[in-house]
Simulated scan of single mutants.
Amino acid sequence: MNYKHLYSKSLDAMGAKLHFASHSHHLWPDCVMAAQNQYILDAFTWADEKWSKAVAPLESKLQTQLADLLSIDSPNQICFAPNVHTLFFRLVSCFDLTAPLRILTTDSEFYSFSRQAQRLGEYEHIDITEIPTLPFASFKERILAAIQNRQYNMIYISQVFFNSGLAVLFLGEIIEACPEETMIVVDGYHGFGAIPTDLSLYQDRIFYLAGGYKYLQSGEGVCFMTVPRSANQYRPLYTGWFAEFDSLDQHERSVNYAPDARRFLGATTDPSGLYRMHSVLNLWQELQLSVSQIHAYVQQLQEYFLSKVTQQGLFGLSTDALIHVQEKSASYGHFLTFRTPDALSIQNKLRQLDIITDSREDRLRFGFGLYQETSDIDQLFQRIADQD
């Protein structure tokens, strides 16, 4: 099936450009324009009352949609925020930051976490332990050993690593290895909406973070977190007035928190991203399009791309330069990652051919999504061939 018509506005605006960076900024489907306009109309119509008359009902519907996709029981255990960094730091602030704090993580977490963790690690009493993800064949053994050998306050790990695309299919083993008092945070930004994700077994054990900028196709400013029902023990220091919105009239000298995921809310934010995300998930429902179907479609595109690399090469690169090939792993997300010291140079060469990819240090990434078909891959390799 061809899904390009769902993205006609984005594709028309892109013109001759070929967009292979859905892992960075996923193109938006047409439906988000009406959704964005609906938010503006609701603001015109309701003014101050928009929060209760329009935003809250829509937010509730979106919570239910996300809960269904993740197979969690209670939509009320989902809260929203403008970005993942805000959610992570709110979780960190649940701890006594004057006391020793130990965080176990990897060397392959996205900058929203890694930069903040590096800054926290400048304090002598805060210890950040990073486990290298490569070689990937031994990664599970090494991170499980780290969990068994030392007590940590928090574990932070990605579902799919941003700098390789490698996917962690053994999250359950990591979760089960952790003591009950350890906070477990899973960054699902490169996984959710791309790889089928079932949290039913661990919904009351982990905090799962994701957002709209990538595979939920709804842009900036709309991220979410699932919260264990046992999380009422946490009182984040980094807190906003939305975290006790229902009891503000009783607010005196004590700081109270909502009894569900709302305890992790901040303050006033732009809710238009909720409208966009809701419209995308509505579209999926109308088309009866599951994440499993999206994943299968993208896998077909990836296989075709790999066959073209095998036939033609790519600026001197072969499939041997792909990290998942080097690591002998069949578990990866919706982008393919070449490891090469020429990553930025090749990205720039591709951009001169109106082919949009991206690079991180020595990693060149090609992303795939519903708005592509095999003819786009053919065009990519034809443009490279024509300039040789």
Rank of each mutant, 00 (worst) to 15 (best):
N2V: 12
H5G: 13
L6T: 15
Y7Q: 03
S8R: 12
H25V: 14
H26F: 09
D30W: 06
V32H: 03
M33I: 05
A34N: 06
Q36C: 05
N37D: 15
N37F: 09
D42R: 11
E49A: 15
E49Y: 12
K50F: 04
S52C: 06
S52Q: 10
A54M: 08
A54K: 15
A56T: 11
A56D: 07
Q63I: 03
Q63K: 05
A67L: 10
L69Q: 05
S71W: 12
D73E: 12
C79A: 15
P82W: 15
T86E: 15
L87E: 00
F89T: 08
R90M: 02
D96L: 04
D96A: 06
L97F: 14
L97M: 12
L104R: 06
L104P: 08
T105V: 12
S108Y: 09
F110Y: 14
F110M: 14
Y111F: 09
Y111L: 14
S114F: 11
L120M: 14
E122F: 14
E122R: 07
E122H: 07
I126S: 02
I131F: 04
A137P: 11
E141T: 15
L144A: 02
A145H: 12
Y152A: 02
Y156H: 07
F161G: 01
N163W: 00
S164M: 03
V168H: 01
V168L: 06
L169P: 00
G172F: 07
E173W: 06
E173N: 09
I175Y: 00
I175T: 00
C178W: 00
P179V: 15
P179G: 07
T182I: 06
Y189W: 11
G191M: 10
F192M: 03
F192V: 10
Q203T: 05
D204R: 08
L209C: 12
L209A: 05
G212A: 01
G212R: 00
C223E: 07
C223I: 13
F224I: 06
R229P: 00
S230H: 00
S230D: 01
A231W: 05
P236M: 15
P236S: 15
Y238H: 06
G240P: 02
A243V: 03
D246T: 03
S247Y: 11
L248S: 00
D249S: 06
H251S: 03
V255A: 02
N256A: 08
Y257T: 07
Y257M: 11
F264A: 09
F264I: 05
A267S: 07
A267M: 10
P271D: 15
S279L: 13
V280R: 02
Q285N: 08
L287R: 09
Q288D: 13
V291W: 10
Q293I: 13
I294M: 07
A296L: 09
Y297C: 03
Q300W: 02
L301P: 00
E303S: 10
Y304I: 00
F305T: 01
G313I: 09
D320S: 11
D320N: 13
I323A: 06
V325Y: 07
Q326H: 04
E327W: 04
E327G: 04
K328E: 07
S329G: 01
A330W: 11
Y332G: 02
Y332W: 08
G333P: 00
S345D: 09
K349I: 05
R351H: 08
Q352Y: 03
I356G: 01
D358W: 12
D358H: 13
D358L: 15
D358Y: 14
E361A: 11
L364W: 04
R365Y: 03
G367T: 15
D376K: 09
L380F: 14
F381N: 08
Q382H: 09
R383H: 08
D386N: 10
